[in-house]
């Protein structure tokens, strides 16, 4: 599912328009104001902050140790001690849902950071240098983009094997080509502008040009997509865990819990439903922020 957003945004690209001039500081201030006046986006930020706080303070918040097993008390219905009941090893579901936020955020943030850094580098380098570098890199990108990211993720993970770091790497690699595509277009557009050519003609080095003129201009778009794709990455992690290729036990993850819980849907519905709601809320929060950011950066859509 995760990549529908990505593709849709890609497809929407021509209608949304690329930045046509370097933005000025005052515009940034105005953008910030626009963003803060966007109530839904602010709601998204607040939600993310709450989820981050929950993840950080998890050890203080949980009523039980999320790893504490008592198999004889498995699949217990909710009561005053176990507010959402217990899982198939007698562990507290609520505590595991709370700790699950850590993995979700970690995978979301790190895989997008990794994919963003890698993808942006590929896109900017391809757009800026052109020629063989461009055709080689962008062909590779297109091949990877061609496949739905669940399928790419599945294959990459099948090779790497399971585990938290590998999950981050797999999702990062899956998302990288999308960033490359986003960074590539604007780089190409800016590269053709007079001020870049002028700068180059007076001997400004490529590295400096990239850093000072190109990257800041690509940055805005990338920020929107980073936020949207953090949502996608979190969902992708859950999907892969749901298929059974998740992070190592006994670490609680939402996708894994939903998977285990479906067997007991009729007996302890919260086993699946609670982590699902947590997952939904987190993905929703990042989407809200991404949406708000887009309104700011793309005046036309706001119109």
């Amino acid at each position: 599912m995760a990549n529908v957003a990505a593709n849709a945004e890609l497809a929407g690209q021509p209608t949304l328009g690329a930045p046509d001039a370097p933005r000025l500081i005052s515009q940034r201030e105005r953008a910030l104001r626009t963003f803060t006046s966007n109530r839904t986006a602010v709601l998204g930020v607040v939600m993310i902050l709450v989820i981050v706080l929950i993840a950080i303070a998890a050890p203080l918040l949980v009523p039980h140790d999320p790893l504490d097993q008592s198999v004889s008390n498995r699949l217990a219905p909710p009561d005053s001690e176990y507010l959402l009941g217990t899982d198939d090893k007698g562990r507290d579901i609520l505590s595991r849902v709370i700790f699950g936020a850590r993995i979700a955020l970690m995978v979301g943030v790190f895989s997008v950071a990794l994919g963003g850094a890698l993808g942006t580098a590929i896109g900017v380098v391809a757009g800026y240098f052109g020629g063989k570098v461009e055709s080689g890199l962008m062909r590779l990108t297109d091949v990877m983009l061609a496949f739905p990211d669940l399928i790419t993720g599945l294959l990459v993970l099948a090779v790497l094997g399971p585990g938290l770091e590998k999950m981050i790497l797999a999702i990062g690699l899956t998302i990288a080509p999308r960033f490359a595509r986003i960074a590539y277009g604007p780089t190409l557009a800016i590269k053709g502008k007079e001020f870049v050519e002028a700068a180059r003609s007076i001997g400004v080095k490529d590295g400096r040009l990239l850093r000072v003129h190109i990257l800041p201009n690509v940055g805005g778009d990338l920020l929107v997509y980073a936020s949207l794709w953090t949502a996608s990455a979190i969902r992708l992690e859950a999907s892969l865990s749901f298929i059974g290729l998740g992070v190592a036990p006994p670490t609680p993850t939402w996708g894994q819990m939903i998977r285990e819980g479906t067997v007991h849907l009729a007996l302890v519905p919260w086993y699946s439903l609670a982590p699902g709601l947590a997952l939904l809320a987190t993905v929703f929060a990042f989407n809200l922020v991404g949406d708000g950011l887009r309104d700011v950066l793309d005046p036309k859509a706001r119109a």
């Binding site: 599912m1 995760a2 529908v4 957003a5 949502a231 969902r235 859950a238 999907s239 749901f242 939903i258 699902g276 997952l279 939904l280 993905v283 929703f284 989407n287 809200l288 949406d291």
Partner: peptide, 10 residues
């Protein structure tokens, strides 16, 4: 927005 935040399996 809620709709597109939904993981299909959920």
């Amino acid at each position: 927005l809620v709709g597109l935040s939904f993981p299909a399996f959920y």
